[in-house]
Amino acid sequence: EEWMVEKALMVRTGLGARQIESYRQGAWIEGVHFKRVSPSGESTLRGTTWYNYPEINKFIR
C-alpha cells in the first residue's frame, strides 16, 4: 500500500490525528508525503487527504 487515508496511517504508524496534522503542517511535503485529491481526481484543498506511507516511513527513519 503506497497511498492511504489518515485512519489507515494511524493504524500503521501509531500516530494520532493531532500528530499527523502537526507533521502535515510542518515537516511533511505536499505531493511527497501527502496529497489532497477531490472525487473528480483533481488536486484541491478540500479533497480527501492521502498519505504516502513509504515516504513517511523513510522520513521517520
Rank of each mutant, 00 (worst) to 15 (best):
R24T: 12
Y51A: 00
E55R: 05
T13N: 02
L9M: 04
S43L: 10
S38M: 11
G41V: 08
E6L: 15
T13Q: 02
E2W: 09
N52S: 05
E42W: 05
G41H: 10
V5K: 12
G41Q: 09
Y23F: 11
I56S: 00
L45A: 11
R36F: 15
E42I: 07
L45T: 12
N57I: 15
R46S: 15
N52G: 01
M10D: 02
A17G: 06
N57D: 14
S22A: 14
W50D: 02
G16F: 07
R18V: 11
M10H: 04
S38E: 13
K58L: 08
I60K: 03
L15N: 01
Y51W: 02
E21A: 12
E6M: 14
T49E: 05
V11F: 11
T48F: 07
F59S: 04
S43H: 09
S38Y: 15
E30M: 05
G26K: 10
G41T: 09
N52K: 02
H33P: 00
V11Y: 11
L9S: 00
K7D: 14
A8M: 14
I56W: 00
V37T: 10
G14W: 03
A27L: 09
P54K: 09
N52W: 03
V11C: 14
G41P: 10
I20W: 02
W3C: 02
T49Q: 04
Q19T: 06
T44Y: 09
A17Q: 11
E30T: 03
Y53K: 02
R18K: 14
G47Y: 14
E2S: 07
M10Y: 04
R36Y: 15
A17T: 08
G16C: 13
F59C: 04
R61V: 14
I20H: 01
M10V: 06
A27T: 08
L9P: 00
E1S: 10
I29C: 05
E55F: 03
G47N: 11
M4I: 15
E55D: 03
R46A: 15
E21P: 01
E30G: 03
F59R: 02
V32A: 03
E21L: 09
R18L: 12
A17N: 06
F59T: 04
Q25C: 08
P54R: 08
N52Y: 06
R46C: 11
N57R: 13
R46F: 14
E6P: 03
M4H: 02
A27P: 12
R61F: 09
Q19P: 02
E30F: 05
E21F: 07
Y53T: 02
I60P: 02
K7N: 09
M10R: 07
R36W: 14
Y51F: 06
I20G: 00
S43E: 11
I56P: 00
I60L: 15
K58V: 06
L9Y: 02
K35E: 04
R24A: 06
T48Y: 07
E42L: 08
F34C: 02
F34K: 00
M4Y: 04
W28E: 00
G31S: 04
T49L: 15
G41L: 08
P54Y: 12
G41I: 08
G26I: 08
I29G: 03
E21D: 07
N52Q: 02
G31Q: 04
E30V: 05
S22E: 15
I29L: 07
